[in-house]
């Protein structure tokens, strides 16, 4: 187990290194010039040249990459070209909001998705199943923007149960989490349903029935734990996805997460911030997957960590 963990962590570090290189190459190849973005429209050619010199943008690619990498390893992500603030501070100020929304959204999508998936599987091919699957189809297809605005309009504007966007209290997190959870619930319910149906058809379920176990006990003790494995892997992916920023939902609800920061940085070619956000989301994806791989054997001992 320990050597497995060490190997996986080393692999993760290599993946992250690869990601820095690829992102850096892509940003280097973009025709837009960050110096001109900083200089603005009234700057003279000399001003732009001076900015480029000071930021080292005239240096050869590998010199720039090496400089970035060595400071990154010392924990220095550089300063934003446009805001001039430390990238690490910009990200740190947004991490709590992103983490909170991630946890709340995953909890919501699991609650909704698993419930729907289990009920649909147990009522397979009956009206309840069809009804729930239509619901999940709609929730997968509905644009987040529309759902977000709709929820906001009904529950915040008309009913006044929640604040109209913003951040700070429990009430603030409900609507964004439900918007994200609604979409995720569609995927989770479909996956849970088919996974349940698979397990329900297996021999050990029939054996359990034959030896006279109650239906509730079979479902809870034998079927669900076996059916939930693919869901665990999916949560791992979701952790990474949500930490890389949920631009649409964040902007509808004015949620101060990483997505908002990333979006603005991309618009203005703010390379240090783009690099920083990419590193954070890549790390989250790698860790999320690692976590899923570590949790799986705890639930199903047949899977070994090799």
């Amino acid at each position: 187990m320990q050597s497995y963990l060490i190997r996986r962590l080393l692999e993760s570090a290599l993946i992250l290194l690869g990601i820095t290189l690829v992102t850096f190459i892509l940003l280097y190849l973009v025709p837009a010039d960050p110096a001109r973005q900083i200089a603005g429209r009234s700057a003279t050619v000399e001003t732009v040249q001076n900015i480029r010199d000071q930021l080292g943008l005239n240096d050869p690619f590998f010199a720039q990459y090496w400089r970035y990498l060595t400071s990154l390893l010392q924990g220095d992500m550089g300063r934003s070209y446009l805001q001039r603030a430390e990238v690490s501070e910009l990200i740190a100020s947004r991490l709590p909001a992103s983490l909170l929304l991630m946890v709340a959204a995953i909890a919501t999508e699991l609650m909704m998705g698993l419930t729907i998936g289990i009920v649909a599987a147990l009522r397979r091919n009956r009206p309840a199943d069809h009804g729930l699957m239509i619901f999940s189809f709609v929730s997968i297809s509905a644009p987040q923007f529309v759902i977000g605005i709709l929820l906001l309009y009904v529950f915040a504007v008309q009913l006044g149960w929640f604040p109209i966007g913003g951040y700070g209290s429990f009430a603030h997190v409900v609507l964004p989490a439900v918007t994200l959870g609604f979409l995720g619930a569609g995927w989770y319910s479909r996956m849970m349903r088919s996974s349940m149906i698979d397990v329900l058809g297996q021999d050990f379920v029939r054996t359990a029935q034959a030896k006279g176990l109650g239906r509730a006990r079979i479902i809870l003790r034998h079927v669900i734990p076996n059916a939930i494995l693919p869901i665990i892997a999916m949560i791992g992916i979701d952790i990474g996805l949500f930490m890389s920023g949920i631009v649409v939902v964040e902007s509808v609800f004015g949620w101060p997460g990483i997505g908002q920061l990333a979006w603005q940085a991309i618009q203005r070619v703010d390379i240090p911030v783009i690099m920083g956000v990419t590193m954070v989301s890549a790390t989250a994806i790698v860790l999320g997957n690692l976590l899923a791989d570590l949790v799986a054997p705890m639930i199903d001992p047949r899977i070994k960590t090799k």
Partner: peptide, 18 residues
């Protein structure tokens, strides 16, 4: 200055006196 609000949402806020 309240930051991060989509103009559509900002309008809703204004209409609600917020």
């Amino acid at each position: 200055f309240e930051i991060g609000l989509e103009p559509t949402v900002a309008l809703l806020r204004l209409q609600q006196g917020q």
